[in-house]
Amino acid sequence: MAKLRMKFIKEEQAAWISHLDLMRTFQRCFLRAGLTVKHSQGFHPHPLMSILLPLSVGQSSVCELLDFETVEDVDTEALIRSMNEGMPVGIRVLECYDVTRPVRELKVLHARVEFEYDGGVPADAQEKLRELFSRESIIIQKRTKRKAMADVDIRPMLEEVLFAEEEDKLILTVRVQAQDPGLNPALLATAVEKELPELKPDFVRVRRLALLDGAGAEFR
């Protein structure tokens, strides 16, 4: 019996798999690999597994983490190999190890946000965005769990924004608060749309790069 953590990539087509479907996919993939995930007790037992910080549909990531419990001890190297034989395109398991750190120690999300401008990046975009993200507060409207709209200040959750340009893209490399509450990096575009409508990108692409602890080291 073991409590294990699995690190995996979710990209390309797999970026469009919803959280619920991803859980199902892993569940089936475990069975394909011949592994029995421990189930909860009760009338409708469900497998004990959870994905840390579920990713928004359409975003990609090279650092997703899945916790699960098994009935027997597991040869993790063999498990990774057989999992990767049975995955849909775009999901690849990288590592599997015993859980040693609690989820609450995960503090920071490191991500790459691409703003695409079909007509080329506006000349003053970088400067204006830099100014926007260094304001004392940035209020945006966000849908709450109760489906109502609420004002949220995203500034306190924003630790760092670095800029780079590439063809028709403005690339933001960001560090944001990961949880309690976490900031979805896509909301940076929402802030731009609200505060600088003329700089609203034609398309936004988000990719998670790393999960970090409070000291800036990789959270494992």
């Binding site: 390309e12 087509q13 797999a14 469009w16 798999i17 919803s18 479907d21 993939c29 549909v57 359409g58 049975g86 995955m87 849909p88 395109v89 775009g90």
Partner: peptide, 14 residues
């Protein structure tokens, strides 16, 4: 991003 259940349009299944 603008359509319902996008995973049905991407392929790439096992």
């Amino acid at each position: 991003p603008r359509v319902q259940k996008p995973a049905r349009y991407t392929g790439g299944e096992y």
